[in-house]
């Protein structure tokens, strides 16, 4: 009986590993990055939910790209990543990621083409 329970549990074993985001640079420590500080910016990647169908898969990387694109910077410092979601049941909603940070424009010599 005990073996059967263990076998059933093993058969139902589930697991996965999903890639959430790729970054060229990430830190949680105070690093000294030389460059020109630009005004604080927000970038987002939101997907709509129509009735109850999601119309896309939001991505943190796209939100970071959006913030860098808006500001013309190369890096974000002192930032936060939020998960944002709102939904009017069976009507419409939006879910996605919002990234907020201070962009830094690196000197031309430190930008890799």
């Amino acid at each position: 009986m005990r073996l059967a329970v263990l076998a059933a549990a093993a058969a139902m074993l589930c697991g996965c590993m999903a890639r959430i985001a790729d970054f060229t640079a990430v830190s949680t420590k105070n690093a000294d990055i030389p460059g020109q500080r630009l005004p604080r910016v927000q970038g987002e990647d939101m997907s709509s939910i129509v009735l109850f169908f999601p119309t896309g898969q939001p991505n943190i990387k796209t939100a970071v790209d959006d913030a860098l694109q808006k500001s013309g910077g190369d890096l974000l410092v002192d930032g936060v990543i939020y998960n944002k979601c709102w939904y009017i049941p069976l009507l419409f909603g939006q879910c996605g990621y919002v990234v907020e940070g201070t962009p830094i424009k690196l000197p031309a010599s430190q930008r890799v083409q």
Binding site: D22, F23, T24, A25, V26, S27, T28, K29, N30, A31, I33, P34, I60, K61, V64, D65, L68, D74, L75, L76, V77, D78, G79, V80, I81, Y82, N83, K84, C85, W86, Y87, I88, P89, L90, L91, G93, Y97, V98, V99, G101, L106, S109, Q110, R111, V112, Q113
Partner: peptide, 26 residues
């Protein structure tokens, strides 16, 4: 629908440096 409206905003992570571009940090 308005009464059932749900929404939230969760802080996933704070960072001091973040980039998706190719940068050369000394």
């Amino acid at each position: 629908g308005g009464l059932l409206l749900s929404g939230c905003m969760t802080r996933i992570m704070d960072f001091t440096v973040l980039s998706t571009k190719s940068v050369d940090i000394p």
